[in-house]
């Protein structure tokens, strides 16, 4: 039992998270009810967070849930529910004449990707931060913040400025008087 939990359970969980994230990803595309599609997207984010957590990247996992599943998708669902776009599905034409074009494009893109992946020599070099090393240095947040506030301080501040500008811009656009 203990052996199972320590050795096999992480693998099983990993496969489960992967399979479900792909399945719900398909759900985002193919479900006709927009609310169901949005909920599939939330489940994709949660499964991806699970994959991150299994890799001991707890910070990314927590931020994934907090920002994507907890904040952005709330707005999505809020808007979908308020506009009641769930009735839109009835107006969609059953047959779409232009369908062959996106299919051809996606197949071509997938072909390019597969070709590229098959013809690349992957030199995997491990970074300096293994799971043990991060534990040694005092956890994900400590390591991340030390980098963010020293080596990457200027890019970090620049991103902060960019986001503030975006917020101010959104407020200005929203407050503009309609003539």
């Amino acid at each position: 039992m203990i052996d199972f939990i320590q050795n096999q359970l992480p693998t099983i969980l990993y496969i489960t998270f992967c399979v479900f994230s792909v399945l719900f990803g398909l759900g985002v595309i193919f479900l006709k009810n927009p609310v169901s599609a949005a909920f599939s997207l939330i489940l994709v984010f949660l499964n991806v967070a699970g994959i991150f957590a299994l890799q001991h990247a707890f910070f990314i996992a927590a931020v994934q849930v907090l920002v994507y599943a907890g904040a952005i998708m709330v707005l999505f669902i809020f808007v979908i529910m308020l506009l009641s776009v769930e009735h839109v599905e009835k107006d969609w034409p059953k047959k779409q004449a232009y369908l062959p074009i996106p299919i051809a494009l996606s197949v071509a893109l997938a072909g390019v990707f597969i070709y590229a992946i098959l013809n690349t020599n992957f030199h995997i070099t491990k970074g300096p931060y293994s799971v043990e090393r991060i534990e040694e240095l005092g956890g994900n947040i400590t390591v991340l913040s030390q980098h963010m506030f020293s080596l990457y301080a200027v890019p970090f501040l620049a991103v902060g400025m960019l986001l503030s500008i975006a917020v101010v811009g959104a407020v200005v656009l929203a407050k503009r008087k309609v003539e």
Binding site: F58, A62, V65, E135, I141
Partner: peptide, 10 residues
């Protein structure tokens, strides 16, 4: 977890 506070928020 070593991200206790973020886990609560998320």
């Amino acid at each position: 977890m070593n991200v206790g506070f973020l886990y609560i928020m998320s």
